[in-house]
Design a binder for these strands. Structure first.
Lengths: 354, 354
DNA sequence: CAAATAACCGAAAGCGTTTTCGGTTGACTC
DNA sequence: GAGTCAACCGAAAACGCTTTCGGTTATTTG
């Protein structure tokens, strides 16, 4: 209650000048060890917290990072964003930095906000997510000179800082997992090529097939929107193939859930005739019948890493391209990925050759 | 690019003093209309943005509201939080205010953070969600004198500001919806009494039964954790009732999904033998088979309203208790709530009387 | 032992606003 | 025509910190 502690009070209590207190607390090297400890002790005792506005004004640093919310969070991107934000906020908090939410309503507004940030510098750096394969934000932020880190890569991210799942590896492992279970007819439901991760995941699937010496027909690759309906329709098309697949690598859990629905509607049992693996590790996948096997990447620690990267860049002058990291996703074994049935796919004389 | 515009530059351009510019921009009444327009025009022209740190230091206002993230977002609270935050950020942005994320890791840390906020005042006000029936945060924040608004009520929220769904009404309407469809055996899967909304929803169900002259056995009320498994187990218990229900009002979508699973495992079809309505309006409910009927409340506009309330209180000195609002949830008709079958519940001579 | 060098601290000038307090005009009263 | 009162504006003091620049001691150096 009452007046908060100020630098001045500590100075008076210790018979020192304000500037000495300031430098002591900021660990300047021209302050003796004894006074430093004395100052720190007194500051602790008086519950001192620096006035951030004064601090930021005087130092010219804002100590604030902005998180750009995806413009239309149409997907169940929900939990994803929350955990990431919690991780970022946690890591920043250790350094007294703040995390501010930026919620542009339109792409145009997003650009205006970025320009304003560049002009005013009231945000030290940005975290962006939901990156596209060809994402204009990378070039824009680079041009504006706004420090940023992204969750996810892009065609423009060669020199920028990012943290991303190793999508290629994940889908390689997903595919070889199917192979180990005995599958030979392994399809892929992918996403629009606009999304960088869509391309990477497709490549992982292809490499998995190749390294196992498996060949599949061209129409084993489906491309769809990242929605329930998209997955459902893609699966319907896959089932019309001459030799329908016995295993499907789905680009996301939501798509996988749609695919499962398509199977059920044809009387085909997910995890029996046709095995399915999704991606995202959504909790709700466990609530399905049968529970969806998927791949999961740690999100909260990802947030913390992103924050650390941004701090490196803004504070320590670390180069963005020295802050790039690939994280490995792990398989979450539930019940939709099993060995193939001997009765599926329906055998014909020309099976398996594209 | 280059130096940002300062008050000083505008003053020089117009041959006025800095203080005049400041007051002109802040619409002081001792500035003539002509100079005001001249100043505004020049400010616009020079892309002037006030230095928020200087502004906040000088004015002693921080113009920042904090959003307290739920400590453990164990549920699919995901989309919920995101939309709310986006709404808050949007509304605050109009006034130049910021939204800061506060992510305490433990309840103890939450208290420490609140105390720090009270001490330093670097956060003008807080938004809290996931309120409990008996939530210590209300008393704490009131005692600390930190302005706040909550999404959801509590036993302590008589005099505080809040926005909440009319849970009672929603479950009343849910129940009478079942009645209109012809149901007489309407059960309720509720949540722990710690949650205020759990009590309200239960009361709505009871009122719905009463106003329709329907009596149900005592064991038609189940209490469970707000999880998939909780819903599943509760439904299993309901099915063991002497006369199993033909309709179930579920406290949340997640619980409803668990209940559906319990039905399927017994060979009972959701929406046929037993109708189900959930609550939350989760998108994923539409992906189920059959799609879950539920109730939905607008979230983004809720965020905007919460922000507006906080602004009222902090800026205009509006009393918290004058900022309370109940919003009505609406039914999302999907496929799990239909007329009862004549073959269900299995008729016995002592049916329907508790 | 003078001179150079650390080591340590205080003074003071900012940082860019807001806001109070006078002061200067001109118009208006009686 | 002296006094009153608006209407408008400038001066200047905050707000609480950072950071540079000297200056004073104590310590080392040649």
């Amino acid at each position: 209650m009452g007046e908060p502690t100020r630098l001045k009070m500590i100075a008076e209590r210790l018979n020192l000048s304000e500037s000495t207190i300031s430098r002591a607390l900021n660990d300047y090297k021209d302050i003796s060890a004894e006074t430093k400890t004395a100052v720190r002790k007194m500051a602790e005792q008086l519950d001192y917290e620096p006035n951030i506005h004064a601090k930021r004004l005087a130092s010219g640093k804002s100590e604030t990072v902005g998180y750009v919310m995806p413009i239309q969070s149409n997907q169940i991107t929900g939990q994803f964003i929350n955990e990431l934000m919690a991780g970022i906020a946690k890591a920043l908090g250790k350094y007294g930095w703040d995390l501010c939410v930026i919620a542009p309503q339109t792409p145009e507004e997003e650009i205006r906000i970025f320009e304003k940030i560049a002009r005013t510098r009231y945000i030290s750096g940005l975290v962006i997510t939901r990156t596209l394969s060809d994402d204009h934000r990378f070039a824009l932020l680079k041009r504006l000179g706004v420090p940023f880190v992204s969750h996810g890569r892009s065609s423009d991210s060669k020199e920028s800082a990012w943290l991303d799942a190793d999508n290629e590896l994940a889908f390689f492992e997903m595919t070889t997992h199917f192979v180990k279970l005995g599958h030979k007819h392994i399809a892929h439901i992918g996403g629009p090529k606009d999304y960088n991760f869509a391309r990477q995941r497709k490549n992982g699937w292809l490499r998995g097939l190749k390294s196992s010496g498996i060949k599949v027909p061209l129409n084993y690759e489906e491309i769809t929107e990242l929605t329930f309906d998209g997955g459902k329709e893609a699966m319907q098309r896959l089932l019309e193939a001459e030799v329908p697949p016995s295993a499907v690598c789905c680009i996301s859990d939501v798509v996988a859930i749609g695919a499962m629905q398509a199977l059920r509607e044809k009387g085909i049992r997910p995890g029996q005739e046709v095995s399915i693996i999704g991606y995202d590790g959504l909790e709700l996948g466990a609530w399905l019948d049968p529970p969806l096997t998927t791949m999961h990447q740690p999100l909260k620690s990802a947030g913390e890493k992103l924050a650390q990267m941004l701090l490196n860049i803004v504070e320590s002058g670390s180069l963005p391209l020295n802050n790039q990291e690939l994280v490995r996703a792990s398989l979450v074994r539930r019940e939709t990925a099993n060995a193939p049935l001997s009765t599926w796919p329906p055998i014909r004389k020309d099976s398996g050759k594209p």
